[in-house]
Design a protein around this nucleic acid. Sequence first.
DNA 1: ATCCACAGTATCCTTTTCTATACTATACCA
DNA 2: TGGTATAGTATAGAAAAGGATACTGTGGAT
Lengths: 122, 122
Amino acid sequence: MKDLPVEIQPEMCKVTDALGILVGKWKPVILLHLLNSGTQRFNELKRSLPGITQKMLTNQLRELEEEDIIERKVYAQVPPKVEYSVTEYGRSLEPILHAMHEWGAKHTIHKQSKKHNQAEAK
Amino acid sequence: MKDLPVEIQPEMCKVTDALGILVGKWKPVILLHLLNSGTQRFNELKRSLPGITQKMLTNQLRELEEEDIIERKVYAQVPPKVEYSVTEYGRSLEPILHAMHEWGAKHTIHKQSKKHNQAEAK
DNA sequence: ATCCACAGTATCCTTTTCTATACTATACCA
DNA sequence: TGGTATAGTATAGAAAAGGATACTGTGGAT
């Protein structure tokens, strides 16, 4: 998703900013996983996210790190050890994620009852 | 953004569902505009969203309509008249949008102070 | 000597999203 | 008779996101 022109309305752009951080095929899942399970190593995450490629995982983690949502801690060891965790600041997203989860759950029901009504109307 | 495998975690998928509705370069702007300004005709919207193409506007409006977030009302006239408005149900997204706006605003500040700190640390 | 685990890069390719531009029908107005 | 406004559709192409696969370095175990 590319950026919107800032001119449109100052207020709107803040929403898109927030959205930008959550957008990406794997970002919400990674975040929720780290919130649930706490600190995780790279390969632990990878194993928990069936289907993700290493490239994507690295890439999404880096983007979240950029925004100070998660933290990356490298241990000077061989084989390497890198731990990821949600920052204190990152936790401020929790209420939003929670609200979205609630809304999403209701929406699933809403769509089903809509379908049902349409079927009845025939 | 493609769908995530449902297997990962039921909880997570609801967040992505909600996100899916807001995702699209112009969807949040369109929604916020309709929430602020009430019912709008196609070309009114177009004029309020500098840079959007007709195709994109149609397309994003259709996707929001699909999800029952907005309503499309066609008047049998020539030249055509079509009005768009947020549904009662669509308004249930307002708290989330509001929360994202608030968070986005704080995030802008957060990023700036981070930059500032980094500059100082040199 | 060979293989494994770890945390990545690098490269190429496909799919999805977004943009640009041209085109449609029809009533009304000058 | 030609031009305007409305709400679109059609087509082609560029750009961005995501996927598949192969490769890297290194210490320890077999």
